[in-house]
Deep mutational scan, measured.
Amino acid sequence: NQASVVANTLIPINTALTLVMMRSEVVTPVGIPAEDIPRLVSMTVNRAVPLGTTLMPDMVKGYA
């Protein structure tokens, strides 16, 4: 099973992502692959992402 990116904290809308905000976890449904974490750093989220939420491609500006 592939690990996905999961919010390690509440990420407010329009926040630039940092490494400490994200962790990898095997979850269903599958979200952004964990190997993309380095690429996500400094990208911003377009909605509030609660703790434990899987990051989906449409949640990160410029990812999809």
Rank of each mutant, 00 (worst) to 15 (best):
I11Q: 00
L40W: 02
V20D: 14
T53D: 14
Q2A: 12
V5N: 01
D36Y: 07
A48M: 11
L55G: 01
N1V: 15
Q2G: 15
T54F: 02
D36W: 05
T53V: 15
T53L: 12
M43R: 06
G52M: 06
T15E: 11
N46R: 08
T18W: 03
N14D: 14
A16E: 13
L17D: 02
D36A: 10
T28I: 09
E25A: 13
I32L: 08
L17A: 00
E35Q: 06
G31K: 01
T18R: 07
K61S: 12
V20Y: 14
A48P: 15
S42F: 12
L17M: 05
D58S: 12
L10H: 14
T44V: 12
T28L: 06
P29M: 04
A64F: 04
V49M: 05
Y63I: 05
I37P: 00
V27S: 04
M59Q: 05
T28A: 11
T9S: 10
L17Y: 00
M22C: 03
N1R: 03
A34C: 07
V20A: 10
L19K: 11
M59N: 05
P38F: 12
A64S: 12
G52L: 04
P29E: 07
N14V: 03
L10F: 13
A48W: 09
P33A: 10
G62P: 06
N1W: 08
T44F: 07
N46W: 05
V27H: 03
R47L: 12
V45I: 07
T53S: 14
T18P: 00
M22L: 11
M43N: 05
V60A: 01
V5G: 00
T9Y: 10
I37D: 00
P57C: 05
V20R: 12
N46L: 12
N8P: 02
I11V: 07
R23H: 06
R39S: 10
N1I: 15
V6N: 01
M59V: 11
T9L: 11
V49P: 02
P29G: 03
I13Y: 09
L55R: 00
V20F: 13
N8A: 14
T15F: 08
M59T: 07
A34M: 13
M56N: 08
R23T: 11
G31I: 01
Y63K: 03
P29D: 10
P50W: 07
N14F: 10
N1F: 10
Q2W: 09
N8F: 04
Y63R: 04
D36S: 13
S42D: 09
K61Q: 11
G62L: 09
R23K: 14
R47W: 09
T15P: 02
I37R: 08
P38V: 12
V27Q: 04
R39D: 04
P57T: 08
S42M: 13
E35I: 13
D58F: 08
I11L: 07
A34R: 05
I11K: 00
A3F: 10
V6E: 01
P50V: 07
M43L: 15
V45K: 00
V30D: 15
L55C: 01
P38S: 11
M59W: 09
T54W: 02
N1P: 15
I37Q: 05
T9I: 15
V45D: 01
A16S: 14
S4V: 02
I11C: 02
Y63T: 03
G62C: 14
N1G: 12
A16R: 11
V5H: 01
V41H: 05
V6S: 02
L17Q: 00
P12K: 06
L19T: 10
V45E: 01
G31Q: 00
T9E: 13
I37M: 14
L19M: 13
G52P: 00
I13N: 14
V41W: 03
V49G: 01
V49N: 01
G31F: 03
A16Y: 13
G52V: 02
L51E: 12
G62S: 09
V6G: 00
V30H: 10
S24K: 13
M21V: 04
L10N: 08
A64D: 15
V60R: 01
M43I: 04
G52I: 03
V49D: 01
G52S: 12
I13H: 12
D58K: 09
T44Q: 15
V30F: 09
A48H: 14
L51D: 10
V27L: 06
T9H: 15
Y63P: 04
D58W: 08
V41F: 05
M43S: 04
S42K: 11
L40E: 00
T18L: 08
S42T: 10
T44A: 08
V5L: 03
Y63F: 11
I37F: 03
L17R: 00
